[in-house]
Design a protein around this nucleic acid. Structure first.
Lengths: 157, 157
DNA sequence: CCGGCTGTAACAGAGGCTGTTACAGCGAAC
DNA sequence: GTTCGCTGTAACAGCCTCTGTTACAGCCGG
């Protein structure tokens, strides 16, 4: 278990929802998504819950409940997903306050904050360049020949 | 304790070494650096050890031992420090293999790997734009009036 | 040889993430 | 209104990372 795979889980879920939508299935349950990601349905619900709070997906309760995309998948970018799922800044400043008697200790936090802000902006600009549709197209490109043309269903049910 | 502050610690250490160098002190001990960062000397040695492996600093043993910059500080970029200090990729892929019976499960990992690679490149491009000298100048700008002109020493000894 | 500092192992505490169980709540369908 | 399936969420365990700390061997200039 290394870094944090929340962005991957969320994008995987959205990508599969986009594929299902293309095939006319508008609603998926957390269990169906979990079958593709191969994790526990609760993990998927936690992830989709964050996406719901960000307005990227909608949920229906009651019998026949499940999740749907709230927007066309080409209007959902990786930046939207990242912002919904990651709260911590990319780089943390000092955990304990540095020595304010030292010029570096006193001045480095605002300075680093500015540079880190620039890096964060660059990261977000790049994330905004890719949509869920882009991910889906790139994903199925790799498997089109083996699977899609045989009409296989998108995942276990 | 939130995210990871290793980049901050390493940049802080290098920035202070650059300031000390400007003032004619070529060698600093881990304890002197730790006094500015306000952490344990072992933490500093761990961090500087990674920078040494990356060729950014040199170390002297024996009496009068300590650390020096291996290159002029304007030739050390935040990317150099980042590469020396961070090993994990920015975003992790799935911990357990997704369901290969699903087209998304099968194709999404290489697809995401490509998009994540683009993001990583953008991040590194931005990090490469800033040098330790830039950080030092930005840092002392904030405190020049209060401290530098009074000739105060850079940190506790 | 001495003394000071590095290099590194070992360990503890805190916290995050994933995975899991359990259960209350909701609402469409009947 | 009842039923039933799924959501929403709490609670917990296991694992891992990071920071901080102690301890100690190794190195080398004087």
């Amino acid at each position: 278990m290394a870094a944090n795979s929340r962005l991957t889980i969320a994008v995987h879920a959205l990508t599969w929802m986009a594929l299902a939508e293309r095939r006319g299935r508008q609603v998926l349950t957390s269990e169906q998504v979990a079958a593709s990601v191969r994790t526990n349905p609760v993990v998927v619900r936690r992830s989709l819950g964050q996406l719901r709070q960000a307005g990227l997906v909608t949920v229906r309760h009651g019998v026949g409940a499940g999740w749907s995309l709230a927007r066309p998948p080409d209007e959902i970018t990786l930046l939207d997903v990242y912002a919904a799922v990651e709260r911590e800044p990319l780089f943390a400043l000092h955990h304990s306050e540095p020595n304010l008697a030292c010029p570096v200790g006193r001045g480095i936090r605002p300075a680093l904050g500015r540079f880190y802000g620039d890096v964060d902006q660059a990261l977000r600009r790049e994330l905004a360049r890719t949509s869920i549709t882009d991910v889906l197209d790139e994903t199925v490109t790799d498997v089109r020949d083996e699977t899609l043309e045989t009409g296989q269903e998108p995942g276990l049910e």
